[in-house]
Design a protein around this nucleic acid. Structure first.
Lengths: 312, 312
DNA sequence: CTGTTAGCGCCTTCAT
DNA sequence: ATGAAGGCGCTAACAG
């Protein structure tokens, strides 16, 4: 349209210095007039770099992850990256498929909250040295980059908070133990009890809760006992919501009869009438931090731990 | 590697009928052995079809939208589509940019929750006949496809629910009126009042709340009055959470002093101790429904309305 | 049934 | 300062 060759046009659009300012202007003008838009596919194909990163979470509907995703999306955009999103629903098969799809999409890097029921996919990814960062969970026997809060400390603080209030019959509705955060928080839970000389009552330990529904049903057994717990630690605020439902169902009141402490500091939690104590984990920061990683090899194998802080 | 030409190999991988079963097997075998993965960029470039759709929401951290996004992601995956996600934070400039980026990515279609402070971008999209569907909001003066709940009915039901309980001093903390859902719910609100012969008190109408924080601060004025409202309709459950905080701050109790009704039926809402009545809007269905649209021209200009149902 | 050719839009290299 | 050629991986069209 301007009479110049495709090359010159593209050079002008890419603002290369070797193009005459005069022609550059002419080209840019007609480009905007015609509504030219670069084709990222072609660029990606040619350069082997798509400015796209894949994000795989286990449940976007979980406020913890949606906040995380928001952080990632925003951070990525600031760097000129786009986000492809997948949701595994904690199913390993879905994780496998999601990774395959994203590799097909030629993403430059991957941010993954691993399901952790198996680790082969992640292992394979590491084996081929594909750039990725684990989010919120990690494998202690796999050398990968990951961004996680200090879950041990979080679990400890949550429990200590209850112990300091004088509770001794403290239950926990934990996540499945193949998930690193559940394991570490549980260790913190046990260590806190130990520190305060409170023996661990195994019947007050429930494992495997990731959703509101699971939290509700797992907590039920506690209230079929002669002496229910006076305090409950929950794996996440999401789970805590379910636990709270059960407490109310059982005719107990929070915090008069039962104290409860959640995790994740989902914004909504602060709106609950009942004082749901929660451990704040820096989601947004986690999101932004992990953005940097696919680009710099430096952060591989590094562990960034946001320090959780207890708050009422 | 198999001795066959690139074409035969690709034909085998695409399971074309014209390839000998024998060679097909040989090719597939070596392909998996070598870990071959199709390049979706190249395919997209060639076919002008990427099996990718762009999703633009105003706030993924809002549980309503994260649930919506989840529905879309799942529905898309079932159809072999991937999702590129952007978050505008209700900023028109971000919406504009997000659309440009996604067009550059050659998405096959767009699902957009429009900011609605301006409509030019959407207008332009419609003008070039790019396939897109508006989510949760629509323009009454633009001919586009959209998927929205029946917000008018929802607003009406929410208000009617309170009226039937005998309330007459009913306030509303609404969203900004440039947003269709806020406008329609408000109309439902007014019509319900009218139906029950309750005059509209303008000082009990607050507009512009989209977040928890906004809900909290907008509701404050209600409790500086001599006679605060005995019931409050909120634009969304998200906003309702903020309103509830204010009610508690003011030393009132729910539902003894003030009844409150939210919207969206965010799953968390059902976990609140206080009875937050909510209008259920079918988010998942909305997500899945909108998935179909970029592919079939038929649904353009169609209005699908999930019928909201009141529930305690 | 298999191979060849051409081209999607972009960028790099080399030649003017 | 500009143009021409080649190729990223894929597919459709045509040829054998």
């Amino acid at each position: 349209m301007t009479g110049f060759s495709i090359n010159t046009v593209l050079r002008a659009l890419n603002n290369k210095p070797e193009v005459r300012t005069e022609t550059k202007e002419k080209i840019l003008e007609t480009a905007t007039r015609l509504g030219y838009r670069p084709n990222r596919l072609a660029k990606g194909l040619r350069l082997n770099k798509t400015a796209t990163i894949g994000v795989i979470v286990t449940d976007v509907a979980n406020p913890f992850f949606s906040a995380l995703v928001k952080g990632v999306v925003k951070g990525a955009r600031d760097l000129g990256y786009s986000i492809i999103l997948q949701d595994t629903d904690e199913a390993y098969a879905d994780e496998e498929e999601a990774i395959q799809v994203m590799l097909s999409e030629q993403v430059d890097g991957l941010l993954i909250t691993p399901v952790q029921s198996r680790k082969e996919t992640i292992e394979k990814l590491a084996a081929v040295r594909f750039p990725f960062v684990l989010l919120a969970r990690y494998f202690d026997d796999l050398e990968t980059a990951y961004v996680v809060p200090n879950d041990y400390q979080g679990g400890f603080l949550a429990t200590e908070h209850l112990l300091e209030q004088g509770h001794t019959r403290i239950a926990i509705v934990n996540g499945p133990l193949h998930i690193s955060s559940a394991r570490e928080r549980f260790q913190g839970f046990k260590d806190a009890l130990n520190r305060y000389g409170v023996p661990l009552d195994k019947s007050l330990v429930k494992t495997g809760a990731l959703t509101i529904d699971a939290g509700r049903s797992l907590a039920r057994s506690f209230f079929k006992r002669e002496s229910p717990p006076t305090a409950i630690v929950s794996y996440s605020d999401f789970v805590a919501f379910g636990v709270m439902q059960t407490i109310h169902e059982a005719g107990f009141s929070i915090p008069d009869n039962v104290a409860i402490v959640g995790y994740d500091d989902v914004q909504l939690a602060s709106c609950l009438k009942v004082p749901l104590t929660t451990i704040r984990s820096p989601k947004e920061k986690m999101g932004r931090q992990s953005d940097a990683s696919p680009r710099s090899e430096v952060t591989r194998r590094s562990r960034w731990t946001g320090t959780p802080t207890a708050e009422a």
